[in-house]
Design a protein around this nucleic acid. Structure first.
Length: 347
DNA sequence: AACTCGGGGAC
DNA sequence: GTCCCAGAGTT
């Protein structure tokens, strides 16, 4: 049998997924390389996000902003609006920061080494290695959730995450080939996404089944072990959806850091575990809405009460700004805010 | 090392 | 409902 890396690359050439940010086998054979801008953009979008969710966003971003310079020149609110719904909004803020550093300090070209890439906003150990390997053919080792799972099973490593991370990284590095490191990185991740899945792995189809110690020991489906996570508390809040008589909606740009940072939203109370303190953003006759918005964030469940009001033209809000119907795009809202709008719009 | 930070699909 | 996902930044 061939080296494991060669075995996996052969599997990848036959079974690798076709994705918009990838260069296919035929083009690669002609010497084509992926655009580093596309690699970077896709890798940031793919952080903790499935390929299926990224597809449409990747297409819209590359259409609106074909180069990193074009993205660097975009307005913040426009980029945040296009990112709306994809989640983890710090990624979008750092995406813009990074684009502007690349445009202004690097002449519009991405650095080619993982070490240099790592210093840029929003590029951590994984993304730096991924860009260096995929875009610049550097023999870097990428370690994402897929690689951790594959390595834990292949080597039957039963230490729970995150403590097992250094060992998993070391194992992954040992196996990384000098040839085609970008393809190899994507191959391991494809293996994790399609064969070595979290539940019910398809070991019978796996190119590494012969040497897999986890499969032989019967531990594979349970690996990697993880330290138990805390239960999510329930927080409560009130959102105020004010409509002016001309149809404008009262919206607020959220602070540039923290939850939903930099995104557009409805003014409201703090979100707390007890009873929320009312905080109407404008003097008006508020009407409660029967239904509430339920939404789950990374570390808490939210139940959001909604109130609405119709306000006259001459009244000034204490918080937020009125946005005319012509310039209001519900798709600019993060999901929890869009849910609130959808509930109120129907009434 | 532990938290914070979204959203959707699979189960 | 829980778990997972091509993780990074902060404390």
């Amino acid at each position: 049998m061939r080296e494991p890396a060669a075995e996996l690359l052969a599997w990848y050439d036959r079974h690798g997924r076709e994705l918009p940010w990838r260069v296919g086998p035929a083009a690669r054979a002609r010497g084509a390389r992926p655009d580093p801008y596309h690699v970077w953009l896709s890798e940031v979008m793919l952080q903790q996000t499935t390929a299926a969710a990224v597809r449409g966003y990747f297409h819209r971003f590359t259409t609106l902003w074909p180069t990193v310079e074009a993205l660097a020149a975009a307005e913040d609110g426009r980029v945040m609006g296009e990112w709306a719904g994809l989640g983890y909004y710090a990624r979008a803020r750092n995406l813009l920061k990074c684009a502007r550093v690349i445009a202004e300090e690097h002449g519009g070209r991405f650095p080619e080494t993982a070490e240099e890439l790592r210093r840029l906003p929003g590029i951590g150990p994984y993304t730096a290695a991924a860009i260096a390997a995929i875009a610049f053919d550097r023999p870097e080792t990428v370690v994402d959730g897929n690689v951790e799972r594959v390595m834990a099973r292949l080597h039957d490593i039963r230490t729970p995450l995150p403590a097992a991370k250094p060992e998993l990284t070391a194992r992954a590095a040992e196996m990384t080939p000098r040839a085609r490191p970008g393809c190899y990185a994507q191959a391991v991740m494809d293996l994790g996404a399609t064969i070595c899945t979290p539940k019910r792995p398809a070991c019978g189809l796996c190119p590494w089944r012969e040497g897999c110690r986890g499969r032989l020991a019967g531990t594979a489906p349970e690996l990697p072990a993880k330290t138990p996570k805390k239960p999510k508390p329930v927080r409560h809040g009130i959102a105020y959806l004010a409509r002016r008589v001309d149809g404008a909606w009262l919206l607020e740009r959220r602070p540039g850091s923290g939850l939903l940072g930099g995104m557009l939203g409805w003014p409201g109370s703090d979100w707390v575990e007890g009873a929320p303190e009312p905080a109407p953003p404008i003097r008006a006759e508020w009407h409660p809405v029967e239904a509430e918005v339920r939404h789950t964030f990374t570390h808490f469940h939210l139940r959001l009460a909604l109130v609405t009001a119709l306000v006259p033209m001459d009244r000034t809000p204490a918080r937020g700004v009125f946005v005319e119907p012509a310039e209001f795009r519900p798709s600019d809202l993060p999901t929890v805010m869009r849910k609130a709008f959808d509930l109120v719009r129907e009434r």
